[in-house]
C-alpha cells in the first residue's frame, strides 16, 4: 500500500516538472526583444543570412508550439541547448558548476544541524532560563538577517580584520589533484592530498556559516518546540520514573521523536539553501550554480538561464519528494 502511495507521489511530480519546463520556456519566449538580437549583442553589423542561420540553429523560425514541442523533447532527452555566450551545451556548464553548489549546501546543512540540535534541546530542557532566552533571541536574529549582509560581515571580521580564513573561491592556486567527483573534499581525500583538503575546508567555512545561519535559526526553534512537546509525554515521565539517567532520557527517549519535525523542516528548507546560494556564491565568489545563474542573467544568456532555473526547480521538487517519502518511513502515523 505504501509503495503505491509513493509511486503516486512520484507520478504527481511529473506534470509539475513538465509545467515547470513550459513555464520557463514561455518566460523566455515572451520576453521582449528578439533572441537573435540579444545573441548578436555587441557583434555590430550582421548580415541577413547570418540572422537566418542563427534563427534556424535555435529553431526560432518555427511557430511557437513547434518550438515548445522541440524544447520539451530535448529536455526529456537531457538536452538543454547551447549557451549563447559560451557556445557549449548548457548541461556541460551546469555539470561543472553543480559539485561546488552541492559541497556548499552540504557544508551549510552540516553547520546548521551541528549547532541547531544541541541548542534546541538545551533550550527546551532549560526552558525559560537565560540560556534559553538568549539562544531564542539569537535564532530570531538569524531568521531576520539578510544572508548577503551576514556574509559580508563574516568577510570583514574573519577575512579582512583577523585574517583567519580565506574569503573567496573554493581553493587557492597551486593545488593539483585529479577531479573525480568535482567535490573537493572527496577528491582531495581520494588523492590523499592533505594540504589541499585543509585548504578546501578552510575555504568552505565562511560560506557555509553564511548560508547555514538562517537554517540553524529555524532548526533550533523547531527542535526546541518539538522537544518541549515530547518532554511532556507519558513515556518520558515513565523513563524518568524508571530511574534512567536524565541524559539517557533526553537523548534516547525524547530526542529521537522530537527530531521528526526537525527533519521535515530541514527538507523544506532545502529551498532556502538553494535560493540563498545565489547570494552567498556571489558574495564569496564561489563558482557554483548560483553564481552561474547571476552571471547568465547579466549576460542575458537565455538558454543558460532557462537551464539553471529548471535545474533549481527540478532539484527542489525532487528534494521535497524525497522528504515526503522519507517522512512516511520515519513517522508511520503519516500517510501520503
Amino acid at each position: 500500500m505504501k509503495s503505491i502511495k509513493i509511486l503516486e507521489r512520484l507520478l504527481a511530480a511529473i506534470p509539475i516538472m513538465i509545467g515547470v519546463a513550459i513555464l520557463v520556456f514561455l518566460f523566455v519566449r515572451l520576453t521582449p526583444g528578439d533572441p537573435v538580437d540579444l545573441m548578436m549583442g555587441s557583434a555590430g553589423s550582421v548580415s541577413q543570412q547570418e540572422i537566418q542561420a542563427l534563427q534556424e540553429e535555435f529553431d526560432l523560425d518555427k511557430p511557437l508550439h513547434v518550438q515548445l514541442y522541440i524544447f520539451l523533447k530535448d529536455v526529456v532527452r537531457g538536452d538543454l541547448g547551447d549557451s549563447f555566450t559560451q557556445r557549449e551545451p548548457v548541461t556541460d556548464i551546469i555539470g561543472r558548476a553543480l559539485p561546488a553548489t552541492i559541497e556548499l549546501a552540504f557544508g551549510a546543512a552540516f553547520f546548521a544541524v551541528l549547532f541547531a540540535i544541541p541548542i534546541g534541546v538545551y533550550s527546551a530542557v532549560k526552558q525559560n532560563s537565560i540560556t534559553d532566552r538568549l539562544s531564542m533571541a539569537f535564532s530570531f536574529l538569524g531568521i531576520s538577517m539578510p544572508a548577503f549582509w551576514f556574509g559580508i560581515i563574516l568577510i570583514i571580521v574573519f577575512g579582512v580584520k583577523l585574517g583567519w580564513l580565506p574569503i573567496s573561491g573554493r581553493l587557492d592556486y597551486g593545488f593539483n589533484f585529479p577531479s573525480v567527483t568535482g567535490l573537493y573534499l572527496i577528491d582531495t581525500v581520494l588523492a590523499r592530498d592533505w594540504p589541499a583538503l585543509k585548504n578546501a575546508v578552510l575555504h568552505l567555512i565562511l560560506p557555509s556559516i553564511a548560508l547555514g545561519m538562517q537554517l540553524l535559526a529555524v532548526l533550533a526553534r523547531v527542535t526546541r518546540s518539538s522537544m518541549l512537546e515530547v518532554l511532556r509525554q507519558d513515556y518520558v515521565t515513565l523513563a524518568r520514573a524508571k530511574g534512567l539517567r536524565e541524559f539517557i532520557v533526553i537523548v534516547k527517549h525524547a530526542l529521537r521523536n522530537a527530531l521528526i519535525p526537525t527533519i521535515t523542516v530541514l527538507g523544506i528548507q532545502i529551498g532556502v539553501l538553494l535560493g540563498g546560494n545565489m547570494i552567498i556564491e556571489t558574495v564569496f565568489a564561489w563558482p557554483g550554480l548560483g553564481r552561474l545563474a547571476v552571471d547568465s542573467i547579466f549576460s542575458r544568456d537565455f538558454p543558460l538561464i532557462q537551464g539553471v532555473v529548471m535545474i533549481y526547480a527540478f532539484t527542489y521538487v525532487i528534494a521535497n519528494l524525497v522528504v515526503d517519502v522519507l517522512y512516511t518511513y520515519i513517522n508511520p502515523k503519516i500517510t501520503l
Partner: peptide
C-alpha cells in the same frame, strides 16, 4: 516548485 528567490530573479 520554484525556490522564491530563483523565481524572483528569473
Amino acid at each position: 516548485a520554484f525556490p522564491f528567490l530563483i523565481f524572483a530573479v528569473a
